Simulated assay, not measured.
Amino acid sequence: MKALPQTLSSALMSCLALALALASAPCRADDALAQVIARVKPSIVGVGSWQKTRTPPMHFIGTGFVAGDGLSVLTCAHVIQKLLDANPDEVIGILTGQGEATQFRPAKVQVLDTEHDLALLRLAGAPLPALALGDAATVREGQAMAFTGFPLATLLGLYHVTHRATVSSLTPVVTPSDNAQRLDPRRLAQLKKAPYIVFQLDATAYPGSSGSPLFDPETGLVYGIVNMVYVKGLKEAAISTPSGITYAIPGSHMQTILLKDKCVSCVPASAGR
């Protein structure tokens, strides 16, 4: 049997190497995501309330995640607003653990940014593992992302669920209606403000996912926070929930409220007297 010419043999070897590389790439990506999920889960918490006379006493409403010094929890403002409107006697806080081992930890509402639908809670006591925020300005269309939260937690229990996503568009937070009569007060109020960009994702988020961190599947850096209600209500009023589109608020707005809270915390008690 004649040996293959050297150039043909080299070409075949190159093709084989490329095929092996392509075949192993998904495995490496899956391994990276699996490791990142294990790392971020301790920082992702439920957001809810506690009322001693209620059965069960703990009530879940959305997702949040720990940032900063380990005592700051970021979530969506509409999640907190639901809790504030429900019953003034309820104690707002976070839910940690999983399933029947879920525990409640009280928290204080520190910042409520309704324009960007963000809220910051502060914990007392021992800090929790915190997630680091990446530079949201570097996010591009087509970039791979993932988000972890507690969809339908009242039905499924407090178990972490992760979804893959692609940033399909960088889009304004509100799209003007083609019919002025369809502009409700909420849309009109948003149109009067300077528009800001949100991440549109090709993923489905269910009730309970609001407040989930949107992170890089290889590094775990957080670039946004999943918004289930506020943005979708402005942009997709005609589409029933859930649709195959999810939105996320860029992390730059989260950086702002973390910095604002830090500045307020640094002001001496005697200042302003």
Rank of each mutant, 00 (worst) to 15 (best):
I94C: 01
L95E: 04
L95C: 05
E100K: 13
E100I: 13
T102K: 08
T102I: 08
T102C: 12
F104E: 03
A107R: 01
A107P: 03
A107F: 04
Q110T: 11
Q110I: 08
V111D: 03
V111F: 03
V111W: 02
L112E: 00
D113Y: 02
D113L: 05
D113T: 08
T114N: 14
T114W: 06
T114I: 11
E115L: 15
E115Y: 12
H116D: 03
H116A: 05
A119C: 12
L120T: 03
A124R: 15
G125A: 09
G125D: 10
L128F: 12
P129S: 09
A132L: 11
L133G: 02
L133C: 07
G134P: 01
D135V: 10
A136Q: 03
A136E: 04
A137L: 12
V139D: 00
R140L: 02
E141T: 15
E141A: 13
E141K: 07
G142P: 01
Q143E: 15
Q143R: 12
M145N: 04
A146R: 00
T148H: 00
F150H: 02
F150K: 00
T154V: 14
L155S: 14
L156K: 15
G157H: 13
G157E: 05
G157K: 11
Y159M: 06
H160K: 03
R164L: 14
R164F: 06
A165T: 06
A165K: 00
T166Q: 07
V167F: 03
S169Y: 02
L170W: 10
L170S: 11
P172F: 04
